[in-house]
Design a protein around this nucleic acid. Structure first.
Lengths: 200, 200, 200, 200
DNA sequence: AATGAATGAGAATTCATTCAT
DNA sequence: CATGAATGAATTCTCATTCAT
């Protein structure tokens, strides 16, 4: 019985999918849990079986999206770095460009993430999406130097992610302080200074 | 007639003050417009005479607070810079420290600002608080160099403000990626790199 | 469990009954949904489970009332016509008198109907009250003649109902253009002309 | 000073014009007195100097519009009747067609009139628009016959107006019971029967 | 585990009306 | 006559949550 199986197909992910669609097409505030369960084809009570409330649901969605963007962009970077030699700075610039390109492509998702890109570095996220750890470790490795221990490197990574995420969301969504196209060169300059003058 | 004048005392600021108190003591979501007007001692309708909705009100409050913090911190910096010679980098480090200190002192306000410190650079804010322009111009001047025009310098300023605001809010409010005390040295290092190697 | 059943007793009709009473005793504009649910003994939200808004509710009430008046008057007519031979014109005059008498008896209901008597011929009404169809078909049959097909007969029926409903409501409620007693003979004259000179 | 004069230009009609535009473009329920006075460029209080409330205002507008339509259509008829001999029935059919054509042309106005076309026969209307009396008298004259006194003729006129107004509004606005194009022939048949077999 | 009718407190917002100027 | 800031009761409608089945 495929219909029954289909109907079961863990309700939790049915809810997650439905909410993502509604949040993206409409808005978070404008989406009622009622709408979500109706689209997911489950009962209202079922929602509360899996999520505490709407914001718990939203967090899980944003984590999933940022995790995807981050790990995929990082994996892409690693493939490039494996093909041809790249300095550390070159790698971060490429990663930034890749992530920004993805955010620009899907402004709806960007609006959902708002300025919370760094949510994908929270323990909950790292636990739920194992790929994240590997990606984060690779980048932490790049940042670790004799005078910058691993712990500090992790902090730096977080700051970089938060900074890029925050500034780019503003630029993409409200062209503040300028358009993304105008922002990127400035961002490159800043990143070069931040990372330059150090190991390959 | 002092009573009439007293009662007038522009209702708009009566509302603003009341809301600030309630938002800080409780929470934004937990504060009803009803509570605000009751505390302000005005009629419900009067609220809608001056504000579109609760979020318009919130924006105006955040603008006021960030404007205060930013202009006062900047003025303090200018007084220090007048007293003793300081390099550009030293000035930005001092400014950062001053702002972060203020945010740490009043976590409630920081929670209200959330990660929107850069809202004080929006046209609406610059218009409402003239002191902001002077402060922003001073810092833009510091960032303008032969190879970085004024427009780009403004963008840089915004990025710096957004970055510091965003990262510090996280650190102060949720100790992510670390406590502020641990964050500050890293931030100093980054800022030195970003600003170093240039004019005195 | 009688209590549960009692309490259930479809809430929708509990609301409908309560609203009818309030609309009739007071006025539509003067009745708040709050009053309706209080009298019906259901929660506010329950109202919105069954009705879009107050005017949806009002429509349903008017449909119910006009449907009752129309079908009962028509059934009464059919019984009379079965007892003694009546010409088509006689039948319509009797029907008109019956309906007008009922509207006069209950001016409150008439005020509610306002001039919308023909609402009982809308698809929604015909679907909800099956008795209506049978009544309408009987009258349409009377109006169908060699030179007036069934479709046209239906249109005529609607026009007659609308005309009688509209003119009589005015007369009953505001004595315009005259009292009902003065109106009826004129209406009879007009109906005789409209229907006369045709089949028995 | 033309501006001042312009600004004076009796406020009452400024309000009336503004409201007409808003009621027609939007809806009556959706138009606040606030909107009206803003568009009219007068103060809120001034509104209450001239109108009791929104419905008083609406009545005055509908009276003006129906009075215009009725007197103009009637005058047009009289000119036609003066040119070539027309029977009473022909005259009423022409009048009906003229009025219906005007209602069709401007559905917005028709929606405003709703089913209250006969409001133009109320004492208040007849007093405010003297042209109405002359028009009504002409038609009453046509309906007065040996066996139908003037009073009864007036009643008949009212009934005809109400009937045509009511049925046509329904047809134009909601195609019930059919489109106007389908309705007109039926209406003609009915009118011919109602008026036929009598004086030229 | 799943349901979904029912809840009802509580939110936002409107708007006719007043009245001191 | 005219104004328009201020009013605040009243109203609609939402929606997270429960619980009997």
């Amino acid at each position: 019985m495929p219909t029954a199986a289909e109907n079961k197909q863990h309700k939790q992910s049915r809810i997650l999918d439905a909410a993502t669609r509604l949040f993206l097409d409409g808005s978070v505030a404008g989406t009622a849990i009622d709408d979500v369960v109706k689209l997911a084809g489950v009962a209202k009570g079922t929602f509360y079986l899996y999520f505490r409330d709407k914001y718990d649901l939203l967090d899980q969605i944003v984590i999933r999206r940022t995790a995807e963007i981050f790990t995929e962009s990082c994996n892409q970077l690693r493939r490039s770095a494996a093909e041809r030699a790249m300095t550390r700075t070159e790698q971060f610039l490429l990663l930034t460009d890749t992530i920004v390109a993805r955010l620009c492509e899907d402004r709806k998702v960007t609006a959902l993430i708002d300025k919370r890109f760094s949510i994908c570095f929270t323990p909950a996220a790292l636990e739920a999406y194992p790929g994240l750890n590997s990606a984060a470790e690779y980048l932490t490795g790049l940042l670790t130097t004799p005078d910058c221990g691993e712990a500090q490197a992790r902090t730096k990574l977080y700051i970089l992610a938060d900074m890029v995420g925050s500034v780019c969301c503003d630029a993409i969504l409200s062209e503040r302080p300028c358009t993304v196209d105008e922002l990127l060169p400035v961002l490159h300059t800043l990143l070069k200074k931040l990372l330059g003058g150090e190991p390959a």
